[in-house]
Amino acid sequence: MCFDNAMAESFFGTLKRERVSRVAYLPREAARQDITRYIEFRYNYKRLHSVVGYRPPCEVHAGYQKLRSTA
């Protein structure tokens, strides 16, 4: 059983630092929508990730698909 939650802690730390701490949410639904939008359009597509060589995940995925189609 794995008790290491460093990846989750890193994600939530980034989320708090880059988004949640900068915005005051009044209704809970507004917070849910804004955080979902941040994850879908910023964190997953534009933000550079160290795990994949400081490239955006969409670029890494496109490279993977290209490599997969040529193989």
Rank of each mutant, 00 (worst) to 15 (best):
M1F: 07
C2N: 14
C2Y: 07
C2L: 04
F3T: 14
F3L: 12
F3C: 09
F3H: 10
D4I: 10
D4H: 15
D4M: 10
N5Q: 12
A6M: 06
A6Q: 09
A6R: 14
A6S: 15
M7E: 08
M7A: 14
A8P: 00
A8I: 12
E9Q: 15
E9G: 11
E9A: 13
S10R: 15
S10C: 11
F11I: 08
F11R: 00
F12S: 00
F12R: 04
G13R: 15
G13L: 07
G13K: 15
T14G: 06
L15V: 07
L15H: 05
L15T: 03
L15N: 02
K16I: 04
K16H: 08
R17C: 04
R17P: 02
R17K: 11
R17H: 14
E18W: 05
E18S: 04
E18V: 04
E18G: 02
E18P: 04
E18K: 10
V20Q: 03
V20L: 07
S21Q: 10
S21C: 07
S21W: 01
R22W: 06
R22L: 15
V23K: 12
V23F: 08
V23Y: 08
A24R: 15
A24E: 03
Y25V: 05
L26K: 14
L26H: 12
L26D: 13
P27E: 03
P27A: 06
E29S: 15
A30F: 00
A30T: 02
A30D: 02
A31T: 01
R32Q: 14
R32D: 12
R32C: 09
R32S: 09
Q33G: 11
Q33R: 15
Q33Y: 01
Q33H: 09
Q33N: 12
D34I: 01
I35D: 03
I35H: 02
T36H: 09
T36A: 13
T36G: 00
T36K: 10
R37I: 00
R37L: 05
Y38R: 03
Y38E: 06
I39V: 15
I39L: 06
E40S: 02
E40Q: 13
E40C: 09
E40M: 09
F41K: 07
F41P: 01
F41R: 09
R42W: 08
R42A: 03
N44W: 05
Y45W: 00
R47D: 00
R47I: 01
R47H: 01
L48M: 12
L48P: 04
L48G: 03
L48C: 08
H49L: 06
H49N: 11
H49Q: 12
S50M: 00
V51W: 04
V51Q: 07
V52T: 13
G53I: 03
G53S: 08
Y54R: 07
Y54K: 03
R55K: 15
R55W: 02
R55A: 08
P56K: 02
P57W: 03
C58R: 07
E59R: 05
V60L: 08
A62N: 07
A62S: 10
G63P: 05
G63M: 11
Y64Q: 08
Y64A: 12
Q65H: 07
Q65Y: 03
K66W: 04
K66R: 14
L67W: 15
L67S: 13
R68L: 13
T70E: 15
T70Q: 13
T70A: 15
A71P: 03
